[in-house]
Design a protein around this nucleic acid. Structure first.
Lengths: 217, 217, 217, 217
DNA sequence: CATGAATGAGTATTCATTCAT
DNA sequence: TATGAATGAATACTCATTCAT
């Protein structure tokens, strides 16, 4: 009597995973509102009703993708990094991990998080935002510790955190992995720019603050 | 769609301008696909047909908004800045101008450019992209001159340009003008971070490059 | 004291006539439902409201065009022909007159009558149909007299009338005045075919060709 | 739009067929532009979206109807007739077949072809026109052979073809099957008129009436 | 005589979703 | 699991028409 083993094998991607991946790609390419369930079912070679067998609703699907992206980020980046004691080392590892995730691993799911999070409503939206805020607080804390340790200048930790996020979250808009720079080289250059800035020099902090004020005034 | 304008009173905003502003706000809040022409006409206190008296199509409206945002940017930021001879002064003025535009003047129109430019097709899309590329080339050139002048470290001008763009373009996601920081203060801090980076120190360039490599390896 | 003479000059086409002509062309090209008042005003170089200054409604405009086409037909064809005593001569003159009107004079207005008369409703529709029926009755009477006179075979006058109408009304679908045949030649051939048919008879071909030429000359 | 058909019971008309028939009737009654998809879905007892499950677009629906009408014509009329060697017999059979198709079998689909073919655009239009031209060329060839065989007078084959088409295509405008004439009688009379014309010849009327009856019987 | 602005009803079409099979 | 058929509500857009100026 043959035992029906219903797709237990892990190497064959589950329908669920297949749907997530395809939907993530479509939401990325056309936006959440711009990608229809018909587009998705076509891309999957299923009927629309077939897709609905696996998901609850389009919004749940979006939430699922974002939650998956978040899990990727948290397990692949945050987890390895949160425990690093030295704030400088921790910051560098965070930037590198985040950049590499964005350029290499799950770009679609993560990009969707950035651009479609206000397509989410109510509870779902709040859950995703909570996880985002957690990351921001982690960054701010790291910058504060870096200042306290004497390694960093007296920068604004909030501004620095969002500056760093902006810099990383913009990557997908321009970076092509088959271009001039490898992911590692990109990460190196971004770490370097974040840590030391553009200008040459030793006690230049005071100098250039003056220059900025001058140019503006 | 009316082309002739004979409106005598300049101080009363034209319907055209009113539509642009309202649409920019809606496209910003809900996305281009997410905001319907019904939403727009409701917000304007007109019927849908009334709106269509003034615009050609939703896509043309989007293009109009983006072109307007671009004109704002070019006339209020680029124009004043392109002629500055000293590259450092020029960079600082550019960052300040761009940040202030984004935080103060026409945030909606400019934000729409960032997020909805792939809702545009064909000719319109190409025109907007061309103007974006022009700005990027201007930034890269400025960074190159800065390096050549000896003021900047041997950074990657392309990466630096996109890092700067990402940092500025992310602002609308978190900055609130009624918060702790004024627009001027925000601009100051961003200029400072971009120029001198996070870390303290004199000949720190060499130092921290080492730190980055260490943290990664 | 100057006497205001408001466009009495006949040689300058009145707005009314201009609108009729342009509308007839558009209704012909795109159908009554397919041609919009916007198309019409554009083609006239006026605004829609400008057009409405001269007409009551789109349906009235259609009725006006059809009535004009009917008047053309009645004054240029029927009037000259109704009084001809000899039924053969009368039939030939009618066919020739109708064909030449359709190919030469007012093709648009007349074509519109054929194709858009069920776009008309109520009273208007009935009026146009009454004039059509009057023509059909005239044709049937002519055929009956032709049979009674001994010139025609014992054909069915109704079928013959509609056959003749179909043959003429189809002309606009294929005949091009700049082609191989002149309008006169076309009329000749149709008269000939109607009178003598396709097959070779005894000597009636030559006979009636003469009759046709006579009736026309 | 479903492509696969697995309907086992052949006798129950498919939705597809039901839609085609109803749409053909509506396009006929109100014209393509005048009949709305709402009219169609109402007539079918479906929602508009329900109709769109079965068709691609209104234009494709029109094309489908016309192609179906063309297939009817080609399979029911042309196919049986193209192989007839004798040109007179062939002409008579063609007229009879065409008239009977128009009066009896699929009047709506065929009528739509006549009146709405310029509602079609591009590829679709060209395909339908190509099939029309093929028929016209067949008619012209038949007339030429008839002349060459010595049976017909030296008429113009092009004019004769279009005259015949006009005569048949006009039928739907006036003929009512429940009237005085049966379809067969109508066909008889039209064949007779086309072949022998209106006028009395010498003895060819009797002759060719016999020929017509022979060709038909 | 003509216009720009506006409208209410309607256009074809697409949406996410459901359900009997 | 999956499907074909269906739906109600929405989509962008167009229509003929009106009216104050």
């Amino acid at each position: 009597m043959p035992v029906k083993k219903k797709r237990t094998r892990v190497d064959r991607p589950t329908r669920q995973a297949q749907i997530f991946e395809t939907a993530a790609r479509l939401f990325c390419e056309r936006g959440f509102e711009g990608a229809s369930m018909g587009d998705l079912s076509d891309a999957l070679g299923l009927t629309k009703a077939g897709v609905y067998h696996h998901i609850g609703s389009k919004e749940e699907l979006l939430y699922g993708i974002m939650a998956y992206g978040m899990e990727m980020f948290e397990s692949k980046v945050l987890k390895d990094v949160e425990t690093i004691a030295d704030p400088l080392e921790r910051l560098v590892a965070t930037v590198r991990g985040h950049v590499l995730l964005v350029t290499r691993d799950r770009p679609k799911e993560v990009t969707v998080i950035l651009h479609e999070s206000n397509a989410l409503r109510g509870r779902y939206r709040e859950r995703i935002n909570a996880r985002k805020r957690r990351y921001i607080r982690f960054l701010e804390k790291t910058f504060r510790e870096l200042i306290a340790s004497g390694a960093a200048r007296r920068i604004d930790p909030v501004v620095a955190s969002y500056m760093m996020l902006g810099m990383i979250n913009w990557i997908y808009q321009w970076y092509r992995p088959d271009g001039r720079l490898s992911e590692q080289e990109l990460a190196d250059r971004l770490v370097d720019l974040l840590l030391h800035g553009v200008l040459k020099g030793n006690d230049n902090a005071a100098q250039s603050r003056g220059a900025a004020a001058e140019a503006h005034g």
